[in-house]
């Protein structure tokens, strides 16, 4: 069961809140980045990420699920055809909220919520590669692991070598220190 949202609803009622969130999501997918209050940005994030997840699935059923929230078909088309391929490698975390200080008129804390469209950073991909490598190492005893092995390697074979080299470099001195500690 989903946890109910804490605090008061946005707007004057449940329908008003749904409308506000749908309009915010439409604006976010249209402009890729919107400035709003922190509270609205925090409420928008789960909804927008769910929409992106549907867009990544990409079939007609997913499109109809999205159309229950977003009413602008042009924006839905952009979401499915332009935004979804850009976040295909990303496993969640499609939006980013950055606080930008209070608004002038009513001192409301403001935030920028934007779609995270840049490709995964090399650090993250090496982390993914490392976790995949450890999984493969744990599965190495089984012969069935061989065909699975080739698929993720296409990412960056160059990155793998330094990563494993640094791993060895970091582990070896630690072991040496441990040996020294034992000798002392």
């Amino acid at each position: 069961m989903p946890t109910p949202t804490k605090g008061p609803r946005l707007g004057g009622g449940p329908a008003h809140e749904r409308l506000i969130l749908a309009n915010l999501a439409t604006a976010l997918f249209e402009h890729r980045r919107i400035t709003t209050t922190e509270a609205k940005a925090k409420r928008l994030r789960p909804l927008a990420e769910r929409m992106v997840t549907f867009a990544k699935r990409g079939d007609l059923a997913a499109r109809r699920r999205v159309m229950t929230v977003l009413k602008d078909k042009g924006v839905i088309h952009v979401l499915f055809t332009e935004i979804a391929p850009l976040v295909a490698d990303r496993q969640g975390g499609y939006t980013r909220i950055t606080k930008i200080g209070p608004r002038k008129g009513d001192n409301a804390p403001m935030a920028v919520i934007e779609l995270v469209l840049e490709p995964l950073s090399p650090k993250q991909s090496t982390v993914a590669e490392a976790t995949a490598a450890t999984k493969r190492a744990s599965k190495a005893d089984k012969p069935a692991a061989a065909p699975v092995e080739d698929a993720p390697v296409e990412e960056a074979p160059v990155e793998e070598a330094p990563a494993s080299a640094t791993d060895e470099a970091t582990t070896e001195p630690a072991e040496e220190k441990a040996v020294e500690a034992d000798s002392k």
């Binding site: 400035t35 950055t98 930008i100 200080g101 002038k104 403001m110 920028v112």
Partner: peptide, 14 residues
């Protein structure tokens, strides 16, 4: 500036 990113919306002249 926020980390390595920059947000023009955050800049306050007053």
């Amino acid at each position: 500036a926020y980390g390595e990113r920059t947000y023009a919306e955050a800049i306050r002249s007053d």
